[in-house]
Design a protein around this nucleic acid. Structure first.
Length: 559
RNA sequence: UGGGGUAUAGCCAAGCUGGUUAAGGCACGGGGUUUUGAUCCCCGGAUUCCCAGGUUCGAGUCCUGGUACCCCAGCCA
């Protein structure tokens, strides 16, 4: 993380921490954690949380734990823990030896539950799930106590033990905290803190058949790890009262506090696990790492860099207001990062043949091209030139308006790093489509400058036919046609963008590009930033993904 | 009158205990440089901070009353 990134702006959590430090709370310690559940892949929304938690720890010389919140054996798997670790590492964060699992605390958690029971603050409820829901009341009416609410401590202890020993059927008993069935906060109406799940856990195997619930586990895990600031998203605001209740009613090694911030919403994308799974399962995308997916794996494959994502997370801020970020903010952090780092190269996506009639038939030559126009340290390379080249179809227009600074019949343009050429003839097929151009070149303009001081309006990119490398280039666009795909409760599948990917199998690259390594980034001049695909790249068939286009004021004018 | 939150330019977002001209970024518009219509460099926008009252010499910041939007009734996290 040596690159210069936008300084982290102030936010309310920073302010709280600074205040705590001023009061020497927690002996001046700052300890955060990133607590994913290993039941799915991380996405850009998680990146916000990762950057926040690790960023806070770094700024205040504290630590940030990576803790897997694995209390639901039926949904979790080690496959996810591996991918999560890889993603966090890729983003540039290091949790060092601070890797934990809530499942490592099952014994302690069990003891805490026993303590609560002994204090008369928890009881085993034998109501069915449906009855519990019934008894809980509604948002506007209070709940009523379960008939099992006043079981004796001894009976509860014995029943809980039977739960643990597998003597009670799944679903026929749970452990509940005894708080207040009439609380206006539904989370406080005797929340379930342990349930029976006769399922194999990915780490504890068959040791347990009772598993603690999130609200009981999370706060105690924080306390066990000495977390000082437990940062989570807004939907847990209502749970804070329960978080505090558990901590306050048990003898814990430390006293953590929970703070909530707004989760990320991004234009033209969807970030709920359920929706993401749906996209994959129904085949709207090709897997979790499809470059259109907002998953870390997807945006990585698309060509985003860790620095650009960190920068993005810093720019969007941390608040409690429910907002939606303009996709251009993300795109722009990538452009900024890659503009200074990505080598330039030429590639023609939709080729149009050009024959330079006065260029010798059997000849070719190598021209010098800068790898980065502003940074000579990135060196130069040779680009082969010959009589037959290809240019971009979009760079020719037959009836061109005055403002069209590219090639047209009778007009002269510069071929980047090569020569000025003038179009002399347009060849069409029976469908009246332009299939070839005949041009002449001015040998005196080699390298791209005219000795007579003649100026040319446009510079276009090109590739020599004899030397070109054929490649597949995938152009990606937003996955949805609406900024907020789920607006008004609509099914986001109704607004899927049918043109979210365009595969060009006949793209032509300058030869240097064939030497790219997987995940290498380039700017294809005048087109955008591209990344060598990590999955389908083959030395026989290069595959590039377009991560983001260049800014295009010409394109904008024409829209 | 269930409870918990949020409201500052098109989109984000600073704004400490109330004090001259309401940061910054993205987007947008204009101009300059340029062998990428890219980059880079200038310049531009809120008499106004959800609304209405009030307190005050002075309020985005305090008070009162509204309005809009988000979250909560898993033995998910």
């Amino acid at each position: 993380m040596s690159e210069k990134e936008t300084p982290v702006p102030s936010n309310f959590i920073r302010k709280i921490i600074s205040e705590d430090l001023r009061n020497n709370k927690n002996d001046g310690r700052v300890h955060t954690r990133f607590p994913p559940e290993p039941n799915g892949y991380l996405h850009i929304g998680h990146a916000k949380s990762i950057c926040l938690n690790f960023g806070l720890a770094a700024e205040y010389q504290g630590n940030c734990n990576l803790r897997f919140d694995d209390t639901n054996p039926e949904k979790e798997d080690t496959e996810y823990v591996e991918s999560i670790k890889a993603n966090v590492r890729w983003l540039g964060f290091d949790w060092q030896e601070n890797e934990y699992f809530a499942s490592d605390y099952f014994d302690k958690l069990y003891q805490f539950a026993l303590d609560l029971i002994s204090q008369g603050k928890a009881y085993v409820d034998s109501l069915s799930a449906e009855d519990i829901r019934e008894y809980r009341g509604t948002l506007t009416s209070p709940g009523k106590p379960s008939p099992y609410r006043d079981r004796s401590v001894e009976e509860n202890l014995s029943l809980f033990e039977q739960m643990r020993d597998g003597k009670i059927e799944e679903g026929s008993a749970v452990l509940r905290a005894k708080i207040d069935m009439a609380s206006p906060n539904i989370n406080m109406r005797d929340p379930v803190i342990y349930r029976i799940r006769k399922a194999r856990h990915h780490r504890t195997a068959d040791k347990w058949c009772i598993y603690p619930m999130y609200d009981f586990t999370h706060c105690l895990s924080d306390a066990i790890e000495g977390i000082t600031h437990s940062v989570c998203t807004l939907e847990f605001e209502d749970h804070r009262a329960l978080y505090d209740w558990v901590i306050d009613n048990l003898d814990t090694p430390s006293r953590p506090y929970q703070y909530e911030f707004a989760r990320l919403n991004l234009d033209y994308t969807v970030l709920s696990k359920r929706k993401l799974i749906e996209l994959v399962r129904e085949g709207h995308v090709n897997g979790w790492d499809d470059p259109r997916m907002p998953t870390i794996a997807g945006i990585r494959r698309r060509g985003f860099t860790p620095a650009s994502i960190r920068d993005f997370c810093n720019r969007i801020g941390v608040t409690k207001s429910d907002t939606r970020i303009d996709i251009s903010v993300l795109e722009n952090t990538l452009r900024e990062d890659l503009d200074k780092r990505a080598p330039r190269a030429m590639a023609v996506l939709k080729p149009l043949k050009v024959v330079i009639e006065n260029y010798p038939e059997s000849e070719d030559e190598e021209l010098d091209a800068a790898n980065h126009p502003q940074n000579p340290d990135m060196g130069k390379r040779k680009v082969p030139f010959s009589r037959v080249i290809y240019i971009e179809q979009d760079d020719f227009m037959e009836d061109a308006p005055k403002k069209f600074f590219r090639l047209s019949l009778g007009r002269e343009v510069r071929l980047r790093y090569a020569y000025f050429i003038t179009c002399t003839e347009v060849i069409k097929n029976e469908q009246d489509e332009v299939i070839e151009l005949r041009c002449t070149y001015d040998p005196a303009t080699k390298g791209g400058n005219a000795p007579d001081g003649r100026k040319v309006k446009g510079t276009i990119h090109w590739v020599s036919e004899a030397h070109a490398v054929k490649a597949e280039v995938r152009l990606y666009d937003r996955l949805y046609t609406e900024a907020n795909p789920e607006q008004g409760g609509r099914d986001s599948r109704e607004v899927l963008n049918p043109a979210s990917v365009e595969i060009l199998s006949g793209a032509l690259l300058e030869p240097s590009l064939a030497l790219a390594k997987v995940e290498d980034h380039f700017q294809f001049e005048r087109l955008g930033y591209f990344c060598a695909d990590s999955k389908d790249w083959d030395s026989d068939k290069p595959v590039f993904n377009r991560a983001v286009t260049l800014r295009d004021t010409w394109g904008k004018m024409n829209r």
